[in-house]
Design a protein around this nucleic acid. Sequence first.
DNA 1: GTCGTTATTCTTGTATGCAATCCGCTAAGG
DNA 2: CCTTAGCGGATTGCATACAAGAATAACGAC
Lengths: 226, 226
Amino acid sequence: MTDNSRAATRVCTIIEQRIASGAYRDGDKLSEVALAEQLEVSRTPLREAFQTLAAIGLVELIPRRGAFVKRPSMTRLVEMFEVMAELEAWCVRLATRRMTAAQRLYLRQAALDCERALKEGAADRYHEANNRLHGKIYEASGNQVLAEEAQRMDRRLRPFRRRQLDVSGRLAASMREHGGFLDAMERGEADKAADLMRAHIMSLSTTYDRYLAMLGETADDHPADS
Amino acid sequence: MTDNSRAATRVCTIIEQRIASGAYRDGDKLSEVALAEQLEVSRTPLREAFQTLAAIGLVELIPRRGAFVKRPSMTRLVEMFEVMAELEAWCVRLATRRMTAAQRLYLRQAALDCERALKEGAADRYHEANNRLHGKIYEASGNQVLAEEAQRMDRRLRPFRRRQLDVSGRLAASMREHGGFLDAMERGEADKAADLMRAHIMSLSTTYDRYLAMLGETADDHPADS
DNA sequence: GTCGTTATTCTTGTATGCAATCCGCTAAGG
DNA sequence: CCTTAGCGGATTGCATACAAGAATAACGAC
């Protein structure tokens, strides 16, 4: 999405997916030479990817020891959702008062795009529109730092968001919630809109519960040695 | 403090200081070859430092363009404070209900240490105790992800926090505020404690206003070479 | 004279080689 | 038999060399 031509970013995405998909287990050591050979890149961009992943908390970087997978536990994932929910709720609260007319129109349009994509079963377009919607809310908060934090937390959660579309029942409800907090925002009910957004985010976490439970089967056994 | 033997970390600290001290101006390009030569390291650890600094938000990394200093403007610094205040307020709200007896004692002790250090004029010990106090509150929130975010935002602000002790009048007030929200926390008044903490953080930002104004003046002269 | 194009040069991105450090194994001593 | 010191293998950290992309400047066409 950002820059596929860079090996570092490509590798970063791959590792991200592998951690999210459960291919790597928590605490696994990521050997530089082995991974470099397997992914057909040199160690330099790989190390760069490790840095990025460490910044979003997906790997732990111990000096002169190496990179270790830090796949979030169930409780940790829920905690991430709580933080995300609070950040987005705050964005909504601010955006309710501060958003411009253009931004309001943009939000409605994005919500429409979501709906249409869902009807047509276009998963990619749904995600794209959904990201636009949330991203515009961050922006409309008027606090750029807050917007960046929200965006960052969103990115941290994204790898675990893949299967979301599989649960089709959840999506229809999600659409209604979009309409809900957008309505509240347009009516100027900041607190209510914030609450709706918080609930919207947290309800997503239930989806992830199932996802993590699936993962849990491969992750819970703890040989303690390897 | 973490690992001085690594060139990358050393370089990272140096650049961090330079940005905070105003040696670099916002938007300045950090040339890899020039800096590498000046700091007497190769480009590899330097690039690593750039990654770390980008993660904290002190530099912006544009693919195939380079690293650019992102020294916060006055409005941006205030925004960072707003986010910090909200994060800490949330920490306090949670910690009020969740903190253990041991944590409560620890907080009181840290507050005492602050007070003593202030009386004795020991700036370092004050900062250390103050960091312990706030850090323990993050921890007591019971949400590890939230705690890490707060810690991270704190670190982002730290380079700009150097001269805080110079404003002595502010410090005494700061001490009273410590007592204020600790009291509220112990009485179980979560919302009130949160409000007090938010006010505590935001009142710090006024100190920074002066700091930034000072920076603005010194930042203007541009030796360009050294 | 201005705009578009292309070539040159500078910078970033990647690969590889070398040095320092850590881990595990072996062997010697208690 | 257990503990510990020393050694060898393997891995990370750093430096340098090479490749690819971007900015710039020069050139030519209109």
